[in-house]
Design a protein around this nucleic acid. Structure first.
Lengths: 213, 213
DNA sequence: ACGAATTGTGATTCACTATTCACAATTATA
DNA sequence: TATAATTGTGAATAGTGAATCACAATTCGT
């Protein structure tokens, strides 16, 4: 059966989406032109009408991921005011996203995607640092408005924020989805708040605990 | 030039070590029989005198990784008393042994290492959870002796501890060694202490800061 | 020192996958 | 409607890397 002739812009979208789905299911290494083509419903060679080579597909996948990650942050900035609530919202959003789409850590932290291509590595680095700088920005705002300690190093805080997500993603990945991402996020969040929020805030919450007990 | 004839036990060690180094440098996907052989100083086919197939090499690499991780913890337990000092010592130790730590996320996120082998994934899972349970044990001891808050969930704390190492390793990897792992560890540690140590401890250090300023 | 076992080597096979190409079908354009 | 442009197809090519094998060099047991 012959595939319906479809304009290249649409096909490109289909191809990138299919690639992302396949990566989520089987990883970057297992991603093959044949696999993508089959998922799209065309023959492998037809894929080359829309992409010059496999590398270009991977680049497009990276672009898609970057867009999704950053739109995540933008969304949260719009919906939620205040540094700490924003960070929490972002954390929970990631907890949800990772279980929905585990392709993100697989792609961003896969080695296969920058095999022998330093510029690709730079691109991945740019995605990560770009994301981190957004978080860092939120932290800096928190420091200015007094909700986050002055002696917190913003970069460190952003990396530690990533540290709540990344290991959890690892565990989730390795345990075949047998790790409760959301529970971890809920448990880790108050601890993280103690990490970075001002002493006044911590002491208040401590007093409250004392009164209760 | 002909390689020196060497007994298979020694070669096996050389091969596994070389493989781990190569993984740390380039990732699992780039790991080839030819690459390992070259590093060891033998010809590719000679490698099959010591391992039946590549998969067996990967299994041995996992065993080595596990052994090194756990011996790390054991060592710290011997040298250092007290939960918090032990955790800090472990953190700094990891910061120093980056090349191995770097291999960890690379291995974990590599799909190549699981390709068509579910039992391999279980093995990786066992290594990580085994390591985490050791950390968790330290945390529990800290809770018992009162240096760590009672309301800290030990599992969560151990995952967050991993969260200080993993993202840093990834960043270091992606930025071509352009990320100061030790600085991150030094910055992250006091924040992590605030995360988990008892309020009394935090308040005392807060008072001290107040007196100073 | 001599045969057997061990280890190393180069050539070769084999499977897999990206990529190309000539040609066919479809759609757009004039 | 006729022709050019676009997209799809199957076959063929080429490069890669794991694995095998016959044979050579080395070491070990005796």
């Amino acid at each position: 059966m012959r595939a319906q002739k479809t304009e290249t812009e649409v096909r490109q979208e289909q191809i990138v989406t299919a690639a992302l789905e396949l990566i989520g299911a089987q990883g970057v290494n297992a991603l093959s032109i044949a696999g993508i083509a089959e998922r799209v419903g065309i023959v492998p060679s037809a894929l080359y009408r829309h992409f010059k080579c496999k590398d270009d597909v991977l680049d497009a996948v990276l672009d898609l991921l970057k867009a999704r990650l950053l739109s995540n942050v933008t969304q949260v900035r719009k919906e939620t005011p205040g540094a700490l609530p924003r960070l929490k919202s972002l954390l929970m959003r990631h907890a949800r996203m990772l279980s929905e789409n585990r392709a993100i850590p697989l792609v961003v932290f896969s080695d296969g995607i920058y095999a022998g291509r330093p510029e690709r590595k730079a691109k991945v680095a740019a995605i990560i640092t770009g994301y981190l700088s957004k978080i860092q920005h939120i932290v800096e705002e928190g420091i200015q408005d007094g909700s986050i300690r002055k002696d917190v190093v913003p970069v460190t805080a952003s990396v530690m924020f990533l540290g709540m997500i990344l290991p959890a993603a690892v565990l989730w990945n390795v345990s075949e989805g047998n790790f409760d991402m959301n529970a971890h996020a809920e448990n880790a969040w108050p601890a993280f708040v103690r990490c970075i929020s001002t002493e006044e805030h911590n002491i208040k919450s401590y007093m409250k605990t004392c009164e209760e007990t």
